[in-house]
Design a protein around this nucleic acid. Structure first.
Length: 892
RNA sequence: GGGCGCUUAGCUCAGUUGGUUAGAGCGUCUGGUUUACACCCAGAAGGUCAUAGGUUCGACUCCUAUAGCGCCCACCA
């Protein structure tokens, strides 16, 4: 016999093993079934499972299991991500600390990359086993890795094609330089944070120089002014017309001189500060662009002020080698001493930091590789479009649907403002740029060209450039994909997985990487394959703490470790608790009581099943009993009707990706309908074994996508089922109509009697006499007399169609049925009176509302017929009830 | 500066074509070992659905404004 309490830990691993060994997760590319594919967003190869992964895995696995049971050929493709910058910095730190090598890069590229690869290999296993703990039914035989040779091939092919189409180009631009990690970053890898800064205003040109008023300039970064090449004013600014086009020599207090030309540009806001801006082309993107626009008019060449270490260059005498901050202090001090500093004002300054290192980002001019998002060379639906236009088009035309849809707006906004994508990184871990240089010659391809003197570009690609190929690069035949004699086109044709499973159906991920990853997958995949990477994007929110704050690694006490939760409460409870009461795009709070609540639910299901299985054992049931729909009790009809409804609604909810709704539906059905009533009604001697079997079997099947372990475990004990639950068919409703009215009435009556007992403080153990006047539905009541007696703990039930009011009895009316508890001395008359009065007052208010509504001509005229009829019925019923209750109170 | 979301019982949240006397779980209170389950059962208390207007016969639901909270985007130096 099964334990009284379900111990998840005792079963989960073994069940997972069973599934895996049976090949239950394995997809078949040759199957005739319609495909349903999810590419798992690959966790970092070096990471450990956190709640973000847990919620992702839960949602995806629910979708996959549901579709698998519905007869789709499901492929859930797992994998890991090499996470270029993140991994490299972790390993560099490790090498420093553990091997005592102060500059790990001194080991040389090959050696360091080898170390990183080795480290990844060792730690990949951790995340794999943790993914299994969640019950994730992914196809491990197809596991991908973003550094796989096949993926590398795809990355190179993508680069090559883009290069040949003129979409990839190399140029010197002011880019975002992460000083801490020594690499460039894409625009969206830069975060903006507000910090308190100082706005300095100082005299830039003297009155003498301008021949009028002195020119004041405001800046929060005075140190960069040492590299200015121009002063910009608004072309319409009357104050400065006479200066436009003039050249000035500016001498800074400690002796450096620069030459600045006054230019006019519409970008300059005449209202801000003095209306004059110092232009530092090499240390600000805006300034750089402005410089480009006016380059021919500007006399001086721009000066590099800040180097890659974030230090002042030797171009600036007296400041060389100083940090930016020190240089600022020094320069401001000099301005102050010389009397040129006019104002220092504190203000909230926006500064740029790296999303990886969280350290400031310096804008620096560098020669880098970019993807042109505006060039119209992409073939899409018979038109030439830019990458940007394709990205917009596929979402607008609903080739890709984003859930929730408000994120479509966010996506559009992002794309409309998208600029060329800087894809080169100065780190070593990642896909190396497939470009070879030989003096001035450039070759782009999978490997070095023939001949002497070719060296590969030193840079690697943005990690998102390679993960952008994830949905299709992982579906290619690995042998074919690395065969240089085959074109990508041919590889596609000869890869059965790609043919069967691409485009994928759902991409499920956190809303925080919609730009980094989702948008980039759309960009690269539409361009390379001519099809969308996925049809639906389901974005989940953050898991937060009880009080709504973010869980952060730096505050471990705020974090819930999913593995600990699984250890304590089981994966099923964790899955339910992350999924119920939440929809796409919304953050959700997770805390112990919540998880415990779903652990309790798991246990409830376990015990209900234990009860049913016990009956089967007792009756020697070893096969599924045949359902006889012709001979059903009221209770059977009722539960089958409820079940039919739940089957349809659960399926609909899951198909619409309303997973929380499905979970809630099943929770309520199992606990409130099945356990509280149907099982209680089955406790007499008249169980319908076939119905019990049918309903339990359906419950397990319906719940399996969300709670795979406990359902599979119970299934294995259920007589008359074939094979494992994971492979069972998802339920469909039974044919026919099921009438549940009699049981609904009984529930109302039993509840009413229980309530009266409780109000009158009748001891639970004491059985009491009850008289019921059933009116026209007396037969209904008669049929279920025994159950009412048992459930309401009645000593003797007197049943008539109608009869004398009973003085001194507790009384109630439900659905037109009068109920009396007539035992002398049992009923607290005063209390009863109070209760009835309260009830009557409520009823009167209710009736007043209803009759008010019905006497309103406009309501009767305008409201739909059905609504009016409904309100009339309600009124009639309420009035009848009121009449009876008034009689009852009189009789007290 | 632009955009978006949230505000429903003490707490966490459901409530999508506008028609329920507004629901659940937890917590609280009362009472319970009744042929599965105390990780349980029965009963109860608790809400002017943020505020103010509007549309409508009818608003938790639609519109407008306000407040509070939160998020995203952004080259005012």
């Amino acid at each position: 016999m099964l334990d009284k309490q379900y111990d998840a830990k005792a079963y989960e691993d073994a069940i997972y093993d069973l599934w895996e060994k049976a090949g239950a997760f394995k997809a078949d590319a040759n199957s005739d079934k319609p495909p349903f594919t999810i590419s798992m967003p690959p966790p970092n190869a070096t990471g450990t499972l956190h709640l973000g992964h847990a919620v992702m895995l839960a949602l995806e696995d629910i979708m996959i299991r549901h579709r698998r049971m519905k007869g789709y050929e499901t492929l859930y493709l797992p994998g890991t991500d090499h996470a270029a910058i993140a991994t490299e910095s972790v390993v560099i730190k490790k090498v420093k600390e553990e091997e005592g090598i102060p500059n790990p890069r001194s080991l040389g590229r090959e050696k360091l990359v080898e170390k990183i690869a080795h480290f990844v290999e060792k730690s990949q296993g951790t995340i794999r086993s943790q993914v299994r703990k969640m019950g994730t039914s992914c196809d491990w035989s197809r596991e991908g890795y973003t550094m796989d040779p096949a993926l590398n091939r795809c990355v190179n092919e993508t680069f090559k094609k883009m290069y040949n189409d003129g979409l990839i180009y190399r140029a010197e631009r002011v880019i975002n330089w992460d000083v801490a990690l020594q690499t460039t970053l894409a625009d969206d890898e830069v975060e903006h944070v507000e910090r308190e800064g100082v706005l300095y205003t100082f005299e830039y040109l003297t009155a003498e120089q301008t021949g009028g008023e002195p020119i004041l300039v405001s800046t929060s970064r005075p140190e960069t002014k040492l590299g200015d090449a121009a002063l910009a004013v608004n072309p319409d600014d009357k104050r400065y017309q006479h200066l436009i086009g003039k050249d000035f020599e500016v001498q800074w207090p400690s002796g450096q001189t620069i030459r600045v030309t006054v230019i006019a540009d519409h970008e300059v806001d005449a209202e801000f500060g003095s209306g004059v801006v110092g232009i530092t082309p090499f240390h600000s993107k805006i300034d750089y662009d402005m410089w480009l626009r006016h380059r021919d008019d500007i006399t001086a060449e721009p000066i590099h002020v800040i180097d890659e270490q974030g230090k002042i260059t030797k171009n600036i005498k007296g400041f060389e080698g100083l940090s930016v901050f020190k240089a600022r202090e020094k320069f401001v001090e000099e301005l102050r001493e010389s009397g040129r500093l006019k104002e220092e004002k504190k203000y909230a300054q926006q500064i740029s930091i790296s999303y990886r290192s969280k350290k400031p980002v310096e804008p620096l001019p560098k020669l880098q590789w970019f993807v042109d998002v505006n060039k119209k060379v992409v073939d899409w639906k018979g038109q030439k479009m830019s990458l940007k236009e394709v990205m917009l088009e596929v979402v607008k035309s609903k080739d890709v649907t984003i859930l929730p849809d408000r994120f479509e707006k966010i996506y559009f906004h992002w794309i409309e403002n998208l600029q060329d994508w800087c894809i080169s990184r100065q780190i070593w871990w990642g896909h190396r740029i497939p470009v070879w240089h030989n003096n001035e010659e450039v070759y782009v391809g999978n490997q070095a060209p023939e001949g002497e003197g070719w060296t590969q570009d030193e840079d690697t690609l943005d990690t998102w450039f390679s993960s952008a190929t994830w949905t299709w690069s992982t579906l290619l035949d690995p042998e074919k994909a690395t065969d240089p004699s085959l074109s990508l086109e041919e590889i596609f044709k000869q890869s059965p997985d790609y043919q069967k499973f691409h485009s994928t159906q759902v991409l499920e991920t956190g809303y925080d990487i919609i730009f980094f990853w989702v948008a980039r997958m759309i960009l690269v995949t539409t361009y390379m394959t001519g099809s969308v990477p996925f049809e639906t994007v389901y974005l989940h929110g953050l898991i937060r703490t009880r009080d709504g704050s973010k869980m952060s690694k730096s505050k471990p006490e705020t974090c819930i470790d999913p593995l600990e939760v699984i250890e304590q409460y089981g994966a099923d409870a964790l899955r339910m608790s992350m999924v119920v009461g939440n929809g796409p795009g919304n953050d959700t709070r997770l805390y112990d009581e919540k998880i415990k609540g779903y652990r309790n639910f798991t246990n409830k299901l376990w015990n209900a099943s234990r009860f049913v299985l016990g009956i089967f054992e007792e009756k020697g049931i070893t096969e599924a009993p045949e359902l006889d729909l012709e001979n059903l009790s009221d209770a059977d009809e009722w539960i089958l009707g409820k079940l039919n409804k739940v089957v349809v609604e659960t399926d609909n909810s899951l198909m619409e990706y309303k997973i929380g709704e499905a979970g809630q539906l099943l929770y309520d059905f199992v606990w409130n309908d099945f356990c509280d009533w149907y099982l209680e009604l089955s406790k007499g001697d008249k169980q319908n074994l076939a119905v019990l079997h049918h309903v339990l079997k359906n419950i397990l099947t319906l719940l399996h996508p969300i709670m795979p372990f406990v359902t599979e475990q119970i299934w294995s004990q259920l007589p008359g089922v074939d094979g494992m639950l994971i492979r069972a068919d998802f339920p469909t409703p039974l044919e026919g109509e099921f009438e549940g009215g009699a049981v609904e009435l009984m529930i109302e009556m039993v509840s009413s009697i229980r309530s009266m007992r409780s109000e009158n403080k009748i001891e639970a153990a004491q059985k009491i006499p009850v008289t019921i006047y059933g009116g026209s539905i007396v037969e209904n009541v008669e049929r279920n007399k025994e159950d009412i007696i048992r459930l309401a703990r009645i000593s003797e039930l007197t049943l008539h169609a109608s009869g004398e009011k009973m003085p001194g009895a507790a009384a109630d009316v439900v659905s037109g049925v009068e109920i009396y508890i007539p035992l002398e001395g049992l009923v607290d008359t005063e209390k009863e009176k109070e209760r009835l009065e309260k009830e009557i007052a409520n009823l009167k208010k209710y009736i007043a509302g209803l009759s008010g509504k019905l006497s309103n001509e406009n309501f009767v005229k305008n409201a739909p017929e059905a609504v009016v009829v409904g309100e009339k019925e309600k009124l009639a019923e309420a009035e009848e009830k009121l009449g009876k209750m008034e009689e009852q109170i009189k009789n007290l």
